[in-house]
Design a protein around this nucleic acid. Structure first.
Lengths: 137, 137
DNA sequence: TTAATAAATGCACTTCCGTTGCATGACTAC
DNA sequence: GTAGTCATGCAACGGAAGTGCATTTATTAA
């Protein structure tokens, strides 16, 4: 039995051909992808199908959205310890100004922030822009 | 001599009627505004004019963009110590999940973050979502 | 004061992206 | 095998950012 197939089933997502392909695609790099990226990778498939595939993945906790400030939503695979669904995933994201790619720095958590009185934090997003490991080398 | 007028001139922005109005509008609350907000406030004015007005303000360091994760760009006045143009303004932004408004917490700077080897930070953006002062009271 | 120049404004239009409605096709359960 | 659920594909919509060009307004130079 295929591992991806059983993984999707464990997440209560029917492992259709399209979903297997998209999931596999997302595992091939640790870089967050836009819907456009995915469309380009599967030119034959319909935009809407890919859109809904990713939305399904999101609902089932397989991927999470990444907002890196480019204005277009990106998606990245959830890691083992990714608690997106519970109390949000507080790792940070890095966007490279050179190669334009966004990576999840999963092991780097957002530090504690002191807010002014009356403000209650529920979620946060930290994006750092600069030069990535690959481009600075 | 009008203070707003001379302020705009000091920023090398010609103080036209439209620009004075938009600037004044932005000073009336400390909440970041979308282009749509501004359009609604000045229904008679043309979209493009407002768009370019705000862009001009941005270029001249009068306002800065705020990306609060809603997908639509917002703008807020730069404060006296706002170094958007030099090495980026590292204050944080708070978006209220109740009233949907985004405020600049200018006095709250983003703490130092340790990045993995090879990563060079040039800019960062931290958005905290939750309940604001006004809505939690 | 007027002519020449530059800047600001307004209109029309385009593009990009996310999203939805609806019809068809595939799979599952009984 | 049939009914029903879920997945897919096509078409279209809507919001927001952005551009080209013509027109108006302001600034400067003669």
């Amino acid at each position: 039995m295929n591992t991806i197939e059983s993984f999707l089933e464990s997440k209560k997502v029917r492992p259709t051909a399209m979903r297997l392909l998209v999931y596999k695609y997302m595992t091939q790099s640790n870089v967050a992808k836009t819907l456009g990226d995915i469309e380009n990778a599967f030119a034959k498939a319909d935009r809407t199908t890919l859109y809904r595939t990713v939305k399904t993945f999101e609902e089932k906790g397989i991927v999470h959205q990444v907002d890196d400030g480019t204005g277009t939503i990106k998606y990245a695979l959830c890691e083992a310890g990714c608690n997106c669904d519970i109390d949000r995933d507080l790792h940070l994201h890095f966007r490279c100004n050179n190669c334009r790619e966004t990576t999840c720095l999963t092991e780097h958590k957002i530090p504690q922030i002191n807010l002014p009185d009356g403000y209650i934090a529920e979620d946060m997003n930290l994006v750092i822009k600069g030069i990535c490991e690959h481009c600075s080398g």
